Simulated assay, not measured.
Amino acid sequence: MSADEGLDMLPIAQHLALTQALYREARLLDQERYADWLALLADDVRYRLPLASRRFRADRSAALAEGPGYVFDDDKGRLTLRVQRLESGLVWAEDPRNAVRRIVSNVEIYRADGDGEAVVHSVLEIHRSRIDAQQRRLTAARTDRWRDTQGHWRLVARDIRFDHPVVIDSNLNVFF
């Protein structure tokens, strides 16, 4: 059986609504509309970026049971604090404002085990330009869980996997 067999796709209307939610989320973050972005998050959200763990293919030693750790492992309270910090005007790396653009692609959506929930796989590319003409391009794969609550999709969990073996920027003042 292939890895994709048996995956249950959502009805087209729900699929389109959830895809639009991903695109809207990217636009809200690009426009620094953080309060609107936080409203897309479920109260029990979990938002994580694990540390990269790359091994040679020939390495047959056992993987670490707990993994190497996380760059961040946030709940809604911690995400709200990060937003408040960005909105404080005291983040020197964001003054003047960085030009940030998010591109969401390779979206796959499947029904999750939980009632009214969906698993979403996507690829995110973030372009960021600073005043000093320094440009960064960050790429990552995301695996999300979204929940339909009274006709509105809410992000419940996001696991981000950097394509880079190390964080290639001096700061991560962006949301993925």
Rank of each mutant, 00 (worst) to 15 (best):
I12T: 11
F175K: 00
V83R: 02
P11L: 11
L86M: 09
I109N: 00
D36W: 11
Q134T: 13
R158W: 02
Q20P: 02
A26E: 04
H121K: 12
R27Y: 08
F175V: 06
H152A: 13
D73C: 12
G67D: 04
R85A: 08
A99S: 00
V71A: 13
I168N: 05
N171L: 10
D159W: 06
D74N: 09
R57Q: 13
T143G: 03
S61C: 12
K76D: 01
L29W: 06
L81V: 03
V45A: 11
F72P: 01
P165W: 13
V107Y: 03
R147T: 06
L16E: 10
S122C: 09
H164G: 04
Y70L: 07
Q150P: 00
I160Q: 04
V119R: 03
D74H: 14
E117H: 07
F72M: 09
L172N: 08
A3I: 14
R82G: 00
L81Y: 05
V156H: 02
R24M: 09
D30E: 04
V174C: 03
R97H: 00
H152F: 12
A141S: 12
A63D: 14
L40W: 08
M9H: 13
S53Q: 15
Y70E: 08
V156M: 04
D43Q: 14
Q20K: 13
D44T: 12
D36E: 15
V45K: 12
T143F: 01
D36R: 13
A39S: 13
E108F: 06
P50L: 05
R24L: 14
L138E: 03
L10H: 04
A63V: 13
E32F: 09
W146D: 00
R154Y: 01
D4L: 15
